[in-house]
Simulated scan of single mutants.
Amino acid sequence: MSESQDPDALAATAARTLAELTGVERHDIALTLGSGWGKAADVIGETVAVVPAEEVPGFHGSAVPGHSGTLRSIRLANGAHALIIGARTHLYEGRGVRAVVHGVRTAAAAGARVMILTNGAGGIDPAFGAGEAVLISDHINLTATSPLEGAHFVDLTDLYAPRLREIARNVAPEIAEGVYVQLPGPHYETPAEIHYLRAIGGQIVGMSTGLEAIAARAAGMEVLGLSLVTNPAAGMGDPLSHEEVLAAGRAAEPRLAELLSRIVARL
């Protein structure tokens, strides 16, 4: 994505291309499915079309194992349409912040008013066990950047929409809530860094979601965030590996898919 391109214009072009390729003029909600959450795309409704991400302007094939690299249009039971973004761009890929939030902006341009962001995360709070789903109540952005450019001031007081979190709690009363910390990655954190994050109020940590949530809010969407705790964070368990993240995601997929399906059905 060229830095000279207007990001909103590119998102509008991507949305038009998506409508042409899927045959769906408007998508009502959008979901970005991170590690462990991908199976939800198979159970929330009827797949209308699957589009390789690179066929849509501004998107790229996934650079991370565990992400599908596609955009999928799904018809829900109530007749609404959901856009599944399986081609998340991470900040550490070096494509810039605009690329990181392009999926969110495209979803907004395609008509989505609700953005569901999911991820796999390390557990900072020892109360959160591996394999547990956590509802994001707030976040701390430690990427040292923002998706907003210029004098664009956006209130983030209720960034993770209370209405949507209430729906999630009604579906799963047992679900824990926590504060998510986004760091740029791609390396995992040191034990000293995890100690710092815990001291400032972080409870789960990962390399996505926060910047996307800000862009979604700026675009006028309601945001729901969900994390799968794939492992205890650095210094709180065994040494970390991406294979461990993928294995935890595979083990939790059926349960997470059922949870997300029930939430989407109530939107």
Rank of each mutant, 00 (worst) to 15 (best):
M1I: 09
S2M: 09
A12G: 11
E20W: 05
H27E: 04
H27W: 04
D28G: 06
A30Q: 04
T32Q: 14
W37E: 07
A41H: 06
V43C: 14
I44K: 09
G45P: 10
A49Q: 07
A53G: 12
G58N: 13
G58E: 15
F59A: 15
H60P: 05
S62Q: 13
V64F: 04
G69W: 01
R75V: 03
G79M: 05
A80D: 09
H81P: 12
L83D: 08
I84P: 02
Y92G: 06
G96Y: 02
V97L: 06
A99S: 15
A107T: 03
A109E: 04
A110M: 04
R113N: 12
G123E: 02
G123T: 06
V134K: 00
D138Y: 04
H139R: 00
L148Q: 01
E149M: 12
P162C: 00
N170E: 15
V171M: 04
V171D: 03
E174T: 10
L183T: 14
E189H: 03
Y196W: 13
A199C: 13
I200C: 09
G202V: 10
L211T: 13
R217L: 09
V223L: 09
N231P: 12
A234Q: 13
P239M: 08
A247L: 10
A251Y: 08
E258S: 07
I263C: 09
A265T: 10
A265D: 14
